[in-house]
Design a protein around this nucleic acid. Structure first.
Lengths: 340, 340
DNA sequence: TTGAAAGCGGTACCAA
DNA sequence: TTGGTACCGCTTTCAA
C-alpha cells in the first residue's frame, strides 16, 4: 500500500500535523524536525494522497475539458496546449468527449461536476445555453472555448468567427471568384459566425449566395470529412457551378476537395477551396489547402491561463472574453490569378 | 454549495446512513423511505461527491492515460476509443502527455499515482522498464499499449510490430523494389520491432540494407514529420538511390514524401513509400499514402476492456498480452507494377 | 514549536 | 429496518 503521513509520523515519533506542516512548508517547524521529516519522506518515497487533500481543502487540482471530438486535430491541439500549461502548475486534466452529442455532453458535464473540478473548459455542442444551467449553478469556474453563447455569462476564448468568414470569403473574391458557395457547419456559434462573415463579405461586394449555395451539413454523417464530401456533391449538381467554396473547417474542405477531384474538376482552376483551422498536415494534401488559421495553440494556452486565474481568485471573477484574430494562410487550393 | 447527504437526511429526518443505502440500492430499506429519499434527491438534484467516495472505498473510478503526443492521430484515436468504452462504465479519464520525454513521463506517472487511479494505460516513451518501477510498486493495474517492455510484467495491447515491418517490406518487394530503405523511429519497442521485421523480410529474399539505408531519426526534430523529411534528405544524398522506403509511421512518411516531391522525383515511379498507422486523412494526401494499419481503434477498445477487467478482479490478475494483426492498406504511393 | 481534536463527504460494520 | 460509530488521509484551528 501507499505510504501515508501516519507512517512517517510513527517512524519519527512526531504527530501527523507536524508532517503535514513540513510538507506544505509551514514556518513554525524547527529546522531539525523538518530535515528529519523530509529525509524520511524521501526514503519512503512519500506522495501525498491528493484525493484526501482535495476533500478537505475543496481544491482538487483537476481541470475538466470537454470537446466534441478528440480526433479532430483542432481539438487535439487544444487539449495539448491546455495540458501543457496546467501541468506546470500541478494540475491534472480530465478529458471527456461529447461526440458532438448534446445529450452525451450533458451527462459528461454532470459526471465531471461530481468530481469537484476546480474549473471546466468546454467547447460545447449545445445549441443553447440551457443545457449548461447546472454548470452555472455549480459555480465552478467555466471557460467556453471555440463556441460561445450570447446569453451565458461565462468566459470565452476563441477567434472572431465573423472575421473568419469575412477573411476567407474576401480572399476568394480577391483571387477572382464570383460564384462563391459555403459549406456550413452544425448548429453552433462557430458555424453561425462564419456564415455571417461569408454573407457580409459577399454583400460588401454587391454579391449574394445563389440558390443552393449554402448546403447544410447532412445530419448522420459521422464526421466532417464525409459531410464535406456530401455537401460538395450537392454543389456539383448545381448550374451554374460555384467557382469558389469556403468550408467551415479543414476536414470538410478535404472531403469537398476529394469530391471535386473525383468529379474530374481541377483545384483551384475550376473551383478554389478554402477551409478553416489550418490543420498541420494541410500542406501535404493532394492539393495543399488554403485555410484560415484558428490559432488552436493560442486558444488552448489562453484558456488554460484564464482557468488558472479564475481558480486562484477568491471571489467569482468577472467573465472575460478573449477574441483572437484569425490569420489567412494561402496554399495551392486558392493560388490563381484574379480574373481581369 | 453542492447538496450533500447530510442535507437530504436532515430534510427528511432520517440518518445519513439511510440516505447512503438508498443511493446504493441496499435492500434493507423500506420502500416508503426509499421513495422519500429518492424524491428528495431528485428535487435537490443530488450528485454524490465522488472524491469523498473514492477516499473511503479506495476506488476512484478514474483511469489514467499517458501518451507521447496527443496531436498524433494514432494516439488521438486511441484516447477516443478508450474514453468511449470507459464512459459507459462510469469511469473518467485523466490524460497526460509525455511529449516523448521520458523524464516528463516519469513525473506525470507520479502525479497520476498520487490521485489513486484505478488503472493506468500508458504508451511509454521510456527506453527501459526501469522508469516504470514505481508504477509497478504501486500495484496499480497497468496496461502498456503500442510500446512494450520484455522485462516488465504488465499487460500489453498492440500490434505485432515485427509483422508490421515484414508486411511493409514484403509489399515493397512485391511491387518490384530492390533497394529498400527504412526510416526508423525513436528508441522504443515499436521502432525496434518494425526494424527487425524489415531486416527479416529483406533477408528472406536474399537482400540486405545498403550502407546508409537506415537513417536514424534526428534528435531534436520536434515531430515525426520533420524527422521524416530530414531522414529522407539524407537518403537522397546516397548513390544508388533507394527505390522504396518504409517509414516507421505515417507522419514520417508524409515528411519523406514531401522531401521526395520537392526534390523533383516521382512517387511511386522513382521511389515508392509506405508508412504505418493508416491515419484517416492518408487518402487525401498529395500522393495517397500506402500504410500498415495499426488498428488504433481496436487497440483503444481492447485496452479499455482489459483495464475494466483488471479493475474488477479482486486479486492481481495475471498480465495478459493482446497482439493484434496489422493490415496492409495499398494506395497510390506504392501502386506500380512489379519489375520484370 | 508541537500536537489534540474536529471535520471534509462519504461508506462499513454492527448493535438497537 | 434503521442509525451510531469509526474511519478513509489529510488540513485547519487552537491550546499546550
Amino acid at each position: 500500500m501507499a505510504v501515508r503521513m501516519k507512517d512517517i509520523a510513527r517512524d519519527l515519533g512526531v504527530s501527523v500535523v507536524t508532517v503535514s506542516k513540513v510538507l506544505r512548508n509551514h514556518s513554525d517547524i524547527s529546522e531539525a524536525t523538518r530535515q528529519r521529516v523530509l529525509q524520511r519522506m524521501k526514503e519512503l518515497n512519500y506522495q501525498p494522497n491528493l484525493t484526501a487533500r482535495a476533500l478537505v481543502t475543496g481544491r482538487s487540482y483537476i481541470v475538466g475539458l470537454v470537446v466534441p471530438d478528440l480526433v479532430h486535430p483542432f481539438f487535439a491541439q487544444l487539449a495539448k496546449g491546455i495540458s501543457a500549461v496546467l501541468r506546470g502548475q500541478g494540475y491534472s486534466l480530465i478529458l471527456a468527449s461529447s461526440e458532438e452529442d448534446p445529450e452525451l455532453e450533458f451527462e459528461e458535464i454532470n459526471r465531471l461536476l461530481a468530481r469537484s473540478l476546480d474549473a471546466l473548459i468546454i467547447a460545447s455542442t449545445q445549441s443553447s445555453a440551457e443545457g449548461l444551467r447546472r454548470l452555472r449553478e455549480s459555480e465552478t469556474p467555466c471557460i467556453l472555448i471555440d463556441r460561445m453563447f450570447e446569453d451565458f455569462p461565462a468566459s470565452f476564448v476563441g477567434v472572431d468567427d465573423v472575421r473568419v468568414g469575412e477573411m476567407a470569403t474576401e480572399h476568394l473574391i480577391a483571387i477572382g471568384c464570383r460564384r462563391i458557395a459555403h459549406i456550413r457547419g452544425p448548429q453552433v456559434s462557430t458555424a453561425f459566425g462564419r456564415l455571417e462573415g461569408y454573407r457580409r463579405a459577399l454583400a460588401r461586394h454587391g454579391m449574394e449566395p445563389l440558390p443552393g449555395y449554402i448546403p447544410a451539413a447532412t445530419v448522420g454523417d459521422d464526421n466532417s470529412e464525409a459531410r464535406g464530401w456530401n455537401a460538395m456533391r450537392q454543389l456539383l449538381e448545381l448550374d451554374p457551378l460555384p467557382d469558389g467554396v469556403f468550408c467551415y473547417n479543414d476536414p470538410a474542405a478535404m472531403g469537398a476537395m476529394n469530391a471535386i477531384l473525383d468529379a474530374g474538376l481541377r483545384i483551384p482552376e475550376d473551383i478554389a477551396i478554402i477551409g478553416c483551422g489550418n490543420v498541420h498536415y494541410g500542406a501535404s494534401l493532394r492539393v495543399p489547402l488554403s485555410s484560415i488559421d484558428q490559432q488552436s495553440a493560442a486558444i488552448g494556452e489562453q484558456a488554460a491561463k484564464l482557468a488558472l486565474k479564475l481558480m486562484e481568485s477568491k471571489r467569482a471573477a468577472r467573465p472575460k472574453q478573449v477574441l483572437l484574430e484569425p490569420r489567412l494562410v494561402v496554399r495551392a487550393s486558392t493560388q490563381r490569378w484574379a480574373a481581369p
